[in-house]
Nucleic acid binder design. Structure first.
Lengths: 197, 197
DNA sequence: CACTTTGTCGACACGCTGTTGATTAGTTGC
DNA sequence: GCAACTAATCAACAGCGTGTCGACAAAGTG
């Protein structure tokens, strides 16, 4: 437990190499057919070394994701602090932009379902914190219903994936505006805005 | 080409056996770690027989899905015929209910991304046909923008998955109503309805 | 009944996996 | 700097699922 602090520079180096190799490999040729041989080859490491750190490539992916997203997005809004979802959502969009090929590969058709769930857990609390303070939100049960959080989270995740697959035709800010318009006002508000805008 | 009509009863039988075996196996233990050995064993067929019909388990899954969904859902609305999405969406919900364990496994955390895309292609045209005739929809470009179709389709798919994972707390009709409320009026309309309802 | 197609069976090489034991390289505390 | 420790390397191994093959049996077709 005490040596779990990973102080040894070799461990840090090895995991960084593995992580970078994973991101590169995934961006190039996806995750599913990716082998541990390829990852370690790209990382210029021995295959056996991989197993000293991770059980399989899923575990490596999780570790990489937490490191990436942790460096980009502040930890989930603790207790309904941020009312405005613009900032965190925009940060999320710019983060996936930075690793566009990686996220495109991993969220797209050849993607990784459990990774999508991980991304959900990043988006979901943002939406939850927003809704729990929404203007009209004073329902008997204090928390917003799960359905609508699922609805919005799934929509955002899907649109992010679409955005990546289409080479990000809109800027992060524009995307956020579109998303928020649809979310709060629905199709009708969105189409109305399209006409006037 | 002429014998591609699959008239031979043995072919029909074999593919049916493989399809049923796949559905059962997936419902029990997911798709990812499922082997062709297991499928053919469950189907009481020889492993080599599998390769006479499909290249891999993905191909079998596609075939099964098209057969299942084709029998349940009418082919995608040809040219903006159905304005009301209630009927096809409800049919979709009842269909996935019928094979709940299968769809739960294949849409959930251990799911299959390319399958989700396939489901998208079933939902997407329904949404498109709806929006292209929506009351406020008279935008310069005749077709509804891709973003919003992606938004709604992803939301529906996510909610369907949530619905399955939570053992379908609401009926198909109730789900459709909830979905349509959020979709057309957005969060505000939904929360408003929650209060009064 | 002859002919064709499908399914069965055993076997094979292939590739990736996860692990092991011995060895080398690098790090830390004294 | 040296000794003790830990991490990384390397070769090798068995295991498993794959995809394919050829020979044979079984079922369908005209």
């Amino acid at each position: 437990m005490s040596n779990n602090l990973r102080v040894d520079p070799r461990v840090i180096r090895t995991r960084a190499l593995l992580g970078n190799a994973l991101v590169e490999c995934v961006a190039e040729s996806g995750f599913e057919s990716l082998t541990i041989q390829e990852i370690t080859a790209r990382a210029t490491l021995n295959r056996a070394t991989f197993y000293l750190h991770y059980r399989d490539k899923n575990e490596l992916l999780e570790d990489v994701f937490e490191r990436l997203i942790g460096a980009a997005i502040p930890p989930p809004p603790a207790e309904g602090i941020s009312i405005d979802p613009r900032e965190p959502i925009c940060a999320m969009l710019e983060h996936v932009s930075q690793y566009a090929e990686f996220y495109r590969a991993i969220l797209g058709e050849q993607g990784v379902p459990f990774f999508m769930k991980r991304m959900r857990t990043k988006i979901s609390p943002i939406i939850g914190a927003w809704l729990s303070r929404a203007p009209g939100m004073t329902s008997p049960a204090g928390d917003p219903p799960e359905v609508i959080i699922t609805y919005i989270t799934s929509a955002y995740l899907g649109v992010i994936s679409w955005w990546l697959e289409n080479d990000r035709p809109l800027s992060s800010d524009e995307m956020v505006e579109e998303l928020l318009t649809i979310t709060s006002g629905g199709v009708l508000a969105y189409l109305e805005k399209q006409k006037t805008g």
